[in-house]
Every structure is written in C-alpha cells, then in structure tokens.
Design a protein around this nucleic acid. Sequence first.
DNA 1: GACACTGGCGCAAACGTTTGCGCCTTGCGC
DNA 2: GCGCAAGGCGCAAACGTTTGCGCCAGTGTC
Lengths: 336, 336
Amino acid sequence: MAMVRLKDVARHAGVSITTVSHVVNRTRSVAPATRERVQRAIAELGYRPDSVARTLKSNRSRTIGMIVTTAHNPFFSALIRGVEDHCFASGYSLVLCNADDADAKQTAYLQTLLERRIDGLIVMTSRNGDSFVEALSRQSLPTVLMDAAPTRRPDLAVVNDDSRLGARLAIEHLLERGLGDIALLTGPASHPRSQERLAGALATLHEAGIAPPATRLVTTNLMADGGHAAMRRLLDEPCPPQAVFAFNDLVAIGALRAAHEAGLRVPEALSIIGYDDIEVARYTCPALTTVHQPIYELGATAIAQLIDRLEHDRPFTPLQSLPPRLVTRESVIAPR
Amino acid sequence: MAMVRLKDVARHAGVSITTVSHVVNRTRSVAPATRERVQRAIAELGYRPDSVARTLKSNRSRTIGMIVTTAHNPFFSALIRGVEDHCFASGYSLVLCNADDADAKQTAYLQTLLERRIDGLIVMTSRNGDSFVEALSRQSLPTVLMDAAPTRRPDLAVVNDDSRLGARLAIEHLLERGLGDIALLTGPASHPRSQERLAGALATLHEAGIAPPATRLVTTNLMADGGHAAMRRLLDEPCPPQAVFAFNDLVAIGALRAAHEAGLRVPEALSIIGYDDIEVARYTCPALTTVHQPIYELGATAIAQLIDRLEHDRPFTPLQSLPPRLVTRESVIAPR
DNA sequence: GACACTGGCGCAAACGTTTGCGCCTTGCGC
DNA sequence: GCGCAAGGCGCAAACGTTTGCGCCAGTGTC
C-alpha cells in the first residue's frame, strides 16, 4: 500500500503542497473554507506526514537517544519506563542503547545516534569512558547524565538521587537500632553512585566515632551473585558483622540468600539494609528494609528537563538531586 | 560544529559527490588511487553519512520498532536485551515503545513508528487490540509477534516459548513428588501465554485423572501483588492446596511471601513452582523451582529472524517455539 | 585505422518535506 | 477612481543522499 504524500492531498483538495503543509503545521493562516477542504482530504486519504523528510528539512528529529548499562537490574526497567512515558506524551521517540559500560560500544552508539540526528541524549552508565566523553564534548548535543558528577557545560545536565543522603539514612537507621558493627557492600570504584554512598556512609559512621576496618568493606559487582559472594566472605570471618548495608537491593538479596544458606536468621542474627527499593524488595522473606530511590521520577525528571530544553529552549538546571527516603520493613532488627 | 557532508568530502578530494557516495557504499568500482584519496578525505574531515537523508532516498531506515507491555517484569529487561544486542551487531537501531496493553496507545505507537519508516517491528503485548491488529494488517511491515497465536500472513512471524510443554513439565514435576492437589495461579484470559499454560496444565492433570475444582483456579495480573493476593485467598479456604503452580515467577514470589506471612513453611507445608526463571528466582528463600524460559534467546531469535528477512529477504518461519526446561531448586518438596 | 567495448567517472533527478519570496485579489480611505 | 495594505495562496529552492544515464578516454580486434 503506497503511502499518501503531501502532493496527493494537495491534488485531492485542489490546492498547492505549500498550503497543505501550512494546514498540517498551523504555520500560517489559511482561509477557513480551504482549510476545511484540506482537512477533509487528509482524513479521507489517511495522510500522515513523513517524519524522515521532515527531519531532513527542518533538522529536528523528535527523537532522543538513551544509552544505558543494562546491568540486569530491574532498576533500569522502571527508569526507562519513566523516560519513555514522558517521551510518548510529548511526541518524541526513544532509541534505546545498551552499552555494557564498554567505552568502544558507547562511542559507537553515540555515532549511530548522531547519524540519526537525535535531538537530545540521556546517558546512564556506571562509568563514562574517555573516548566517549571526548566524542560527546565535541558535539553540542543537549544531554542529561544520570549517575555522574555535575559539570559546568551548558549543554550538559545531571540528574541524580542524593546518594550521600541515602547512605546517611541507612547508616543512621542501623545505628539507631544499636547496630554499630556494620559491613559495607560497595560497588566498583568506577561507579559514581557507589562512591557517593560510600562517602556518605563513612561520614555518618565517622560522626558516630566509628571507623570500620578494611575487612568490613567489600566490593561487589552490584548484582545478586556479587552480594551473595561478598556475604559469604563476611560470614567466613571469625567475627561476622551485626549488620550489612548493601549498596543496592540486588546485592542485598544476594546477601539475604547467603545468610539464609548459612542458617543465620535475618534480622535476629544479622540485619541487612538495601538501596533502590526495587519492586521485589517488599516480597523477599524477610521483606527488605531499604533506601527508596524515586526511580520512575528520576527518569521522568531527566526527560522532562531535556524536552523542556528542546521545546522551549529553557536552559538546563546543572544538577538535580532527588531525595531518597528510608523504607522500613523487616530485614533490620527492631529496637530493643 | 557544522556537520561534514558528502559535498565537503567531494570538494576536498577533488571528485564528484557521486564518486564519494560510491566509495562509501562500495557500490561501484572506483580506481584505487581515487578511492584512497576519497578515503583519506573522509578520515581527515571525519565524515559520517547522514542516515536521515539515506532513509529518505533509499527507503530503508535500519531501524526497528519494538512495542512491549512493560508489566514491570524483569523478564522484559532480558528480552529487550536479547533484541538490542543483535540489533547493534547488525547496525540497526531499536525504538522502544511501552504500550501498557492499551489498544489506543499501541495504535498510536504504530503510527509513529510508521512515520519514522521503520523496517521491521517486534511486538510483545499480552493482548493485541482490534484496532491495532487491523492497522498492522493494512501495512506490509515485516513483524515478529511474541506471545501470540501463529498466523498465515507471510509478513508476520511468531516466536514463542512452548508454554504448553512448560506447563506440562511443571505439573509433571509436582505429580512426581506426590502432589495432586494443585492450585493454578493463571494470568488474564486475554493473555495468550497464560491460556497455553492453562491448557497444558489442565491436559496434564487430566491425563493423571485429576480435574481441579474451580476454586483451585485463580486469575492474577501476573505481578507479585497479584500472586500475593491470590495466595491469600487460597489460604483462607478451609482446605488449602498442597501445591501451587504460578504462571510466572513474579506471581510465585508473591505467593511465597503470602505463605511466609501465613506462617506456612515452603516447601514442607506448601510447594510452589514458578515460570520464567528470572534472575532473582535463584535468590529467593527458598530458591524457586521454576520452568526456565530461554528469555534472552527468545529475543535474539525474534530479531535474528527479522533482520535476516530484511537483509537477505529470507522468508519468515511462521512459528518458532523454543523449549522451556525445568529448574529444580527448593520450593517443591523433596520426594519421600 | 575504424570500431566496439570497457573502466572510470560526473550530471542531475529524484526522495517528501519546509519556507522565503512574491504574485494576485479584495477592500478601504481619500 | 486611485493607491495601498492585507489576506490568501503558489513557486521553487533547499535539506543530504542514491542512482540511472551517459560522456570520455583508453584498449584490443579485425
């Protein structure tokens, strides 16, 4: 079925292509009678404007690219969801790219996206490689970085959760419950959020006069298997910790499982607190006490800002940090 | 930074636009000396072809659309991942659309995608609305349906897991363990996979001479909260079942949680089996016995077939059913 | 030495839009 | 009755490619 074009509509309505275009785009006034004739022709023929030709001519694609490191984390589904909803509502399309944190792949994706003339970009990777950052900075492409350090560039914005605060909430909660011997299940050193959480946790402990020994800091891959392995290492030690702060829920779930396998009751023998509040966190046994990130809102904020910039060229807010909050469930021991 | 165009390269290399284009696309022979000159010019200027203009002219966008109902199910992350990886490897881009199973939204997305001249489409929705199916059938757009009934249309292929077999595996496993009183936690009647699983389960039970009463069939929304609610209803009955077959893992996890809350030990007092084998299934306590779907492969198969069709116009295989397999963990009681 | 062929390349017309420029026709003021 | 503004519309040139057609030079054939 051949597509209907502007010229078909024009012929059918007995006007010029120009007029049809102006009717479609409301871009100059057209006599009511003509307009109606054109609109009828559009409806009868089922005309839909070709967005490829539009893009070529007008240099706007109404497409935004999103590069993520997929990490197998349900966290991302919710995030993408937040982005995608808003895109749709504003008539934008989303091109999704899983970059695996591989610098070469990120850069390749960026190239592809540029070739497709995306209007804006959202990047959420745990590590931004050099060649990627460099390639990005050569463009003047409105970009929102998630999980990154703030910058001064006017075409770059950052949207984050306030991980330092989140970590503080977690640690304070444990301390309030009388739990002073806390192990930290961190992420890789290249992961900005992990570093923030680590800094926040350490600062809070420090204020309480606690300086955890090196054995209480275990690096994980931020996935369930990593949490599991880390917890086992901790439990092998002569004197296991009273509590564990896992830097995300997947890690906490792995830790939970390791404790279960070791026959340790949570929270009686060991308290565990997570971070993210992914969907399943409330369904684990025991249900996971965790720091809630406004995941969907994080995505929505990023895209809202981007589209706002594109549509009304409003300047970027350089940094937006959304506050996390504590969700108390069952995996931390009740106060005595 | 203005983009480099074909004409810039042409000027720089002292040849015509035509020649540069042919060098880029390897589409007709060019004298070695000239070719090298052109290639050098391309490298020096950093030329990258504009895929929008290409699409306009050649009517191929190297873009494929994917419409999913996001259902908050980690299942989808893995699936999308499978699709996306293969897309990237073949130089295609993926436009992602969350349609929420809303017919109007699905149709709207389809329109948008058509306007963008996608080359192919992958649809995974639990229910394909009428207006959507009709709009789709008016196009001759190569499309792979996942989770749908096979069709005879040459531009439509279906990729599935063999849910009937999967259900059989689950039920047989329970029967082997001496569990005859089984409740089924199904999905909505509009969900093709659920119907297949239901049919498979019922058939297997029937062969064993068992016909479950209506109270043993509970419909859920295929999410954790639904599984939780369904399980509670079941436990409220005077005589709860010995075993539960949940039609996906999220439902199983909800059920697990409900059993836990009711103080019922799994699997000693109640056996639970799931479906999908999502990442977290192995980390629940007890770890979930479930039917493993080759999720990533499902996605990979769909996209591989689609791209194969687009690139080498190989005809579609109308139906591919990938075999699931049983994964035995801890949530079903051991044989006596 | 005329001829046909071939390899190497360029011209220019598409693809489906958007948009600056400018041409009519009216209507109004004087 | 003339001038002028304004409203209503169309022409044609872009946007950056791909590609059919055809030109030119060089080579081999009889």
